[in-house]
Write a protein that binds this DNA or RNA. Structure first.
Lengths: 240, 240
DNA sequence: CGTAGTCTTGATGTGGGTCAAGTTGCGTGG
DNA sequence: CCACGCAACTTGACCCACATCAAGACTACG
């Protein structure tokens, strides 16, 4: 029996064909043979919100895809200052092939399910499969583009523009899943995590959220959700 | 006759075996067959300092490796604010396979020589060569790591730490090529370009360069060069 | 219903931005 | 070889967006 009967098991197994991220993850281009090879070396694992997945400077024996939830990547200076350097959603890849030692901490921002592969068999599978390697390159280029967009945000945007850019990204992601465009969007991050992402402090994030609401750019009743009445308006506020 | 006789020709050809970046570029893992295939589709081209190589939103028919010189990648907001999002050195790759339209401007920061490949034959060559594709993935992961390091710099470091980090990167690159460790390092960027890279203004860069000199962290007589008497001291100043 | 984490709001401080005025360096042409 | 002109750089005076410091309020969970 597969894991549907055990939704919160820490280790479990779901056939790739039934996987919700089949079309978006590293396996997106895989053919039947490749998929069953992947199927043979994978296992699902759950992480509660706040749990560490990878630690900077530590060798990790696994890599994997996010099936459910949000993972944050953080880099720190020795004196404790910390900056989030990546935010990963379902379908995104955690850990890098040919880079056993992580360059940053990866932490579950929400409850997370990963589809894990042992590093060694995954790498040899990739070496034999052009599709898999091409997909990996593609995903890495997408991440690089996103990181560069973020460099522009951190280097040149005001606090209000940064918040708007972040909310815009979430609104666009939410728009991809069908539903009422004016529905509440659940924020996957706390104010403190948003600050870590945006290169700001908690207080500045909180103040500008309040102001964006006062100016009717967004609406919210609880701190962990927002409504976006007009994407166009939010785009203006984001600065680009 | 090959281009050694025509050092400033805009188009020319050098056998890969004689190429100074043979070991560091996308061709680093290529075997004999792959190398001669690359040799067949490549051409060298020179760009004077300041020349545009790629423009944001424009389809580029070529990709290529930097043979000589420094290339800067810049992203701009509609109101003119601009942030450098990458700085590429000899061996680095310009343009992305499977991404015909650039996401940013690429400009020659110094006089530059590129080893250009037509996009289509390069991509099909890559599809057929595991070594080439693996090298490409490897280089992209390295760029991603560098971009994330830069996110930490832009998000959390002070102006003095940013300058020190930048100078440290140059000092480490210079240390790779043999020579007097206390020799002058030529700065590939103007104060304005350094500011664009570091998320600062020209004035702030200039002031902190002056202060770092006053504090004996660095030495310089002309604006376009520095001496680093102690790498260890510079590392302290860089914050990590 | 207590307590701890999260969020909001206010008062004040400061690093880096802005504006402005030189200065230095260098290529061009007389 | 020098004079001109322009771009790059430096330095100073002032300003402001965001950080810091400090209370209090809300929420969730035992």
């Amino acid at each position: 029996m597969e894991s549907f009967a055990l939704p919160n098991a820490r280790f479990s197994h779901v056939r790739c064909g039934a996987c919700p991220i089949r079309e978006h993850a590293v396996c997106a281009y895989a053919n039947g043979d490749e998929l069953s090879a992947l199927d043979g070396i994978k296992s699902y694992r759950d992480y509660a919100a706040g749990r560490d997945i990878l630690s900077a400077g530590v060798r990790a024996p696994m890599v994997g895809s996010i099936v459910r939830g949000v993972v944050k990547l953080t880099k720190s200076l020795p004196d404790g200052r910390a900056q989030m350097v990546g935010l990963l959603f379902p379908g995104d890849f955690v850990g890098h092939p040919s880079r056993a030692e992580a360059e940053f901490d990866a932490t579950a921002a929400t409850d997370v399910t990963l589809c894990l592969f042992q590093r060694a068999p995954f790498e040899s599978l990739m070496r034999g499969s052009h599709r898999l390697e091409q997909r990996m390159l593609d995903m890495t280029l997408t991440e690089l583009d996103a990181a560069r967009e973020w460099l522009l945000l951190l280097g040149r945007k005001t606090a209000r523009e940064r918040l708007s850019s972040f909310l815009l990204m979430l609104a666009r992601r939410a728009a991809l899943t069908p539903g009422d465009p004016l529905a509440e969007i659940a924020l996957p991050l706390t104010r403190g995590e948003m600050a870590a992402y945006l290169g700001l402090t908690i207080e500045t994030v909180s103040r500008h959220m309040t102001r964006l609401r006062a100016d009717d750019v967004i609406g919210f009743d609880t701190a962990r959700s927002v409504r976006v009445p007009s994407i166009a308006r939010l785009e203006e506020e984001a600065g680009d």
